[in-house]
Amino acid sequence: MKEELFLSGRMNPNIDPYLNIWHWQIPLYLFLGGLAAGILFFAALYTIRGKAHLMPATVKWATFLVPAALVLGLISLFLDLKHKPFFWQLYTTIRFESPMSWGAWVLMLVTPLSFIWSASYLRETVPSWKWRYRWLESFESWVIKNRPGLSWAMIVLAVILGIYTGILLSAFNARPLWNASILGPLFLVSGLSTGAAVIMWLSKDPAERKLMSKIDLMLIGIELFLIVHLFMGFLASTAVQIDAAGLFLGGQFTLGFWVFVVLLGIIVPGILEIMEIRGYHIPVAVPAILILYGGLLFRFIMVEAGQITRYLY
């Protein structure tokens, strides 16, 4: 029998028996960040490609959700901070090695941009809307004119934001579960997929819906591929990572992950989308909601499970 114990000390709260430092705020923040990145990515992409007029849900309606998502995300990040009066310290320095730092800065840039972007569509969507000040009106017309240029900025920032939501975790080598380079792309793809799902859900245009559906199917395919690779990577790695994978392969997260995230949150909506494309009548809300729910749960599980895994020495 091997016995390992603390003879004394290490009574610090939320450290043992496993870390319990991040709660619902961080996964929610990651989810909302990924979702916003996804929507902005598609909005910018189709604006750049000059197809904005064909994709109203993509460039217009869905983007109205983005400022809300980002603000909610920022609020949950803020709620997570334990030394709140010093929040502003985030913006006194840029630390390139710290994902937290550039995440904060990206949000600092992307949030106003998303506000401006959706504001510029406000009059189109709500015809009765009037800007109170003249300079707002002229700013609006400047934005409308420069949408393609802004799109470039937005697409870059959206990709950074999306990757950031994954890298935030994978930067922590100390948590074997997070310590996988595939996590960044996986979160990016998952974020894009949730973005596509929202657009699909909001879209009234069958062509747009179909296109987003196809894109989403592709993303789902990539996602599944990355997940398989993630676990193959773990199993071919160090003892601590094999242990970490064990949480999902027979361990306490097995059911939650494979049934609720992978099956219900990825595969089932994928099948539903295929059926829809093949002409079966599926209410579009169903796959969309499943994907959103799968994406959210995925982040909750990754954050929670990651905090359980640790180095053994």
Partner: peptide, 19 residues
């Protein structure tokens, strides 16, 4: 200067930090 984001706690393989 610390905002209490917890990133450093997550990053320490020795769990040497606390809030």
């Amino acid at each position: 200067k610390c905002i209490g984001c917890g990133a450093c706690i997550q990053s320490c393989p020795y769990d040497a930090r606390y809030s």
